[in-house]
Amino acid sequence: MTQPAIEISGLTKRYGEGDAAVDALKGVDMIVQPGEVVGLIGPSGSGKSTLLKCLGAVIEPTSGRMALAGETIYDNGWKVSDLRALRRDRIGYVFQAPYLIPFLDVTDNVAVLPMLAGVSNAKARERAREMLAALDVGHRAQAQVPQLSGGEQQRVAIARALVNRAPIILADEPTAPLDSERALTVIRILNEMAQRFGTAIIVVTHDEKIIPTFRRIYHIRDGRTYEEAGEARAA
């Protein structure tokens, strides 16, 4: 039995103290297997972004446990000393907007991640070009960011998230600015990449048109997660 890529249990996050305290997460449980694309759905203020930030190691949870590929990274306190390296090497991010760096060309937007990890420029660019080709934007490798369409930019952003072979990708409403066709294309690409690289992907979304594409969905409401039964979705 393989280790779950993501394993969260009893995760809480409290903002503020005393009377002003707000419990954004009240005991989240979640398991995502390698190669699985999971939807995370909930209304505004339900705690989606907080969960993503905790899992992305950019804010510290208040309590609970998080493990990536069997390694506990948080257990009522961080268990890794270098969160920056954790984010760089083990977690990929896809945002609502692509947030590509406008002063870098397409290749370097992707290559910057391995470069930050200490890979040589030539090697990093080679990896970037491979990943861009895998996402069908290899022909735009030399283009500047403003020359790309919205869909192409999002593919480049996905390439950047995948280029370091991160076992986990956190996608924060990646289809929000796209039309139905492009949105479905992005989800198809994420599924393909998850299958191809064994990457676990959590997609936060409100997007009704892509929700049916998920095999598993976690609903989050009032800081708690509820898994939608697999049988129900299959039906």
Binding site: R87, R88, Y93, F95, Y99, I101, P102, V112, L113, L116
Partner: peptide, 15 residues
């Protein structure tokens, strides 16, 4: 925004 992305994906402060 670019700086936040760079920091999120692991850029060091000195970079």
């Amino acid at each position: 925004r670019e700086i936040a992305v760079l920091k999120l994906i692991g850029a060091r402060n000195r970079t």
